[in-house]
Design a protein around this nucleic acid. Structure first.
Length: 307
DNA sequence: GCCATTTGACCACG
DNA sequence: CGTGGTCAAATGGC
């Protein structure tokens, strides 16, 4: 199962309710599978020598991995705009993810609703010296995916968080840790999907121009094959992860999902390594659809959003 | 004390 | 003028 393309259908309006129920069921299933997986892991990790990454005896773990992946994929598909987006399975890192090839009319994380919070700290009326004028970049290569985890094994530094209009969850802004070292302009935005808080919509803006070091060498193999660089989004693999915690984690399930995903990843490595062609094909395929020249004109496309 | 995150303020843009 | 993206002082963890 390397790549899946689901070409968007047209307005399935009457389906919203069914879809919601479906999603609930799927989330539930995902949760159960997660628990099962953790159970298995615990069993297998008790023995002193846990040399193997991720733990878990291969057969069961693999199976659960697949199950979880199926859930994640299905959820992502359901959770995606019914318009003209395409979805791809992206296995480059932490478990299963769907890459949504941004289409020209929509690009963002916006979608959600119900805002309102104002936790002002203390209003310091002291005017701050104003930092140099900064330009907001307008056209950058962007791509996004939906994932049960915010983790992607890339080195990011959080530099901001914003409450978004009509969004229940804030959006977090990350930049590459090498921004100042190496002038890397990659950034990403992470936002929890309102109708399905188990999932995060992660939008990457700009690709890494830095040379990163590897944190987990094995991961590199996956991240990208250098050969296809017609448009290589998140090129290099990374090193360290800078955000050990989730943006907002109201319930424990997300954490579980994340933990799980880390393990998923290590297991997926095995899968992929034994199946190099699969990955290669997938990789080329997926990235082929990544967007360039994206505009930050969110305000206009209220209709295209994740439900 | 250093470094990453938080968070209010500032700024670009529609 | 409202909204979202970025900056940098304040804060917190190690």
């Amino acid at each position: 199962m390397s790549s899946i393309v689901i070409c968007g259908s047209e307005g399935n309006i009457g389906f919203s309710e069914k879809r919601e129920r479906l999603m609930n069921k799927l989330v539930e299933g995902h949760k159960h599978a997660t628990e099962l997986k953790l159970l298995l892991q615990n069993q297998n990790q008790n023995p002193p020598a846990t040399i193997h990454h991720g733990g878990g005896s291969s057969a069961e773990a693999l199976l659960i991995t697949k199950i979880l992946r199926s859930f994640a994929e299905t959820l992502s598909v359901l959770d995606s705009p019914s318009s003209s987006a395409s979805f791809f399975l992206n296995e480059n890192n932490s478990g299963s993810q769907l890459v949504i090839a941004a289409n020209s009319t929509n690009n963002d994380l916006r979608s959600e609703e119900g805002s309102s919070e104002s936790s002002k700290r203390f209003s310091s009326s002291v005017p701050k010296d104003r930092r140099g004028t900064y330009k907001r970049r307008k056209t950058e290569e962007t791509w996004s995916n939906v994932s049960p985890t915010t983790e992607d094994n890339l080195a990011w530094r959080k530099y901001g968080q914003k409450d978004i209009l009509n969004s229940k969850f804030p959006r977090s802004y990350y930049r590459c840790t090498r921004k100042y070292d190496q002038g890397c302009k990659a950034t990403k935005q992470v936002q929890r999907i309102q109708d399905n808080p188990v999932l995060y919509q992660i939008t990457y803006i700009g690709r890494h121009t830095c040379k990163e070091t590897l944190k987990a060498p094995q991961m590199t193999a996956y991240l990208l094959n250098p050969q296809d660089h017609h448009q290589t989004p998140p090129t290099n693999a990374i090193i360290k992860q800078e955000y050990p915690k989730q943006e907002d984690t109201p319930s424990g399930e997300i954490i579980i999902a994340e933990k799980l995903d880390a393990n998923l990843w290590s297991e997926l490595k095995d899968i992929e390594i034994t199946n190099p062609p699969t990955y290669a094909n997938f990789s080329a395929f997926s990235y082929h659809f990544c967007t360039t020249g994206f505009h930050f004109d969110d305000h206009h496309h209220g209709e295209s959003h994740m439900l």
